[in-house]
Computed example of a mutant assay.
Amino acid sequence: MSVTDLTRELAAIPSHEDETAAGDFLEAWLRRETPAEVTRDEAGNVFARKGAGEETLALVGHHDVVEPADSQVGPGGEYVLEERDGRLYGRGTADMKGAVAAAAIAFREADPAGELVFASFVGEEVGGVGARHAIDEGFAPDYAVVGEGSTGYSAPGVTDVAVAHKGRRGSTITARGERAHASEQEAGENAIYRASDAVDVVRDLEPPAVEVAGETLGGSVVVTEIEGGTAMNVVPDRCELTVDERTVPGERAALERVADLEGVAWTVDQDLPPMECGDEAFAEAVREAADGAQPGAPELVTKPHATDAGWLSQAGTDCVICGAAEPGEAHTDAESVSIDVLERCADLYRRTAESWPR
């Protein structure tokens, strides 16, 4: 079975609400097509292992997707796949069942230099549920190639190797006051005014930035929502702000300062960690594999989006990101992936597995 055929079959399986059927398919394919030890954990993650050595390399992806558009679903509930102009169109083709298929093909074909693991997680789109469960249960490869998109970063059509990405911290600032009639505002304490003081603190923060692979990876912090008040003639006793923060490896913006204001509390709702590869030799080995698999000249780059590589990196795995998806394809109504690039990724994953660990 080719990477195109495997992508087509896997991507047709609905997995935006329940990943079970996609996991069943992957598990059955790996058992049928490889002699590997294949397992499934309680979360629904699919693993396969082969080879031996003191160090482990994992090819990592996820088989959940975001909700498809109506045009991407067939009459029987299956996802619609179309092939035209050398691309496969459909939900999950780019993010990231195409790369999962490429990793599975590479896993089947490779004669690995050490222990090789195939891992496809559930729940990446909802905060890394599967990756976090696997890590908690002891999943700890020494190295990982995470197949999220890295094509088209240095030049159109070139599959690069991302050695760092931003994280995302989402939080809520809650300002509390004392309700009063608006005609007697001095009798109360205006929560919106307190929230405004918190906004001033956020606006004055200097987000950190780091230099990685010759690029500046800069963080950001911005107030994105505000809700408060009950009526035109009532001094509000509560106001809530939502903050979107893009984090970078290392320091964070000092957002906790808002909690020093009177009547203001700060809570973290989501914290997806950033990633930076700590092993230059591993990153260069993957870049060399990518170079050998394509006519273009891949570079070491950075990526703006959080991935499961953040969780793995936080747990001690040296990660890079290398995959077929191009910027602007994931989560769109016209999501697609290049068939040539899928074949390229299968080749470069195999090359990496056969050359690393050294």
Rank of each mutant, 00 (worst) to 15 (best):
A265P: 11
A265T: 15
A265M: 12
W266S: 08
W266M: 04
T267A: 15
D269A: 11
D269Y: 03
D269W: 00
Q270S: 14
D271C: 06
L272A: 09
P273K: 04
P273Y: 04
P273H: 05
P274D: 05
P274M: 09
P274N: 04
M275N: 11
E276K: 14
C277M: 06
G278N: 02
D279R: 01
D279F: 02
D279N: 13
E280W: 03
E280P: 13
E280G: 10
A281G: 11
F282P: 01
F282Q: 03
A283P: 08
A283K: 11
A283V: 07
E284G: 09
E284A: 15
V286Q: 12
R287D: 09
R287K: 15
E288S: 13
E288D: 15
E288N: 14
A289T: 12
A290T: 11
A290H: 04
A290P: 09
A290Q: 10
D291N: 12
A293H: 06
Q294E: 12
Q294C: 04
P295I: 06
G296V: 03
G296C: 01
A297Q: 14
P298E: 00
P298C: 10
P298T: 10
P298Y: 03
P298W: 02
E299R: 10
E299S: 12
E299I: 06
V301F: 00
V301W: 01
V301T: 13
T302S: 04
T302L: 06
K303W: 01
K303R: 12
P304W: 12
P304K: 01
P304I: 05
H305A: 15
H305K: 10
H305N: 14
A306G: 07
T307N: 02
T307F: 00
D308R: 01
D308T: 03
A309T: 03
A309W: 00
G310T: 06
G310K: 08
G310V: 04
W311V: 00
W311G: 00
W311R: 01
L312F: 11
L312S: 09
L312C: 07
Q314W: 11
Q314C: 01
Q314L: 13
A315Q: 02
G316A: 08
T317M: 03
T317R: 05
D318V: 08
D318L: 06
D318K: 03
D318N: 13
C319Q: 07
V320K: 04
I321A: 03
C322G: 04
G323F: 12
G323C: 09
G323E: 04
G323Q: 09
A324W: 06
A324G: 02
A324Y: 03
A325E: 10
A325D: 09
P327F: 10
P327C: 12
G328N: 08
G328K: 10
E329G: 01
E329Y: 08
A330G: 13
H331F: 07
H331I: 10
T332N: 07
T332I: 05
D333F: 13
D333T: 15
A334K: 04
A334L: 03
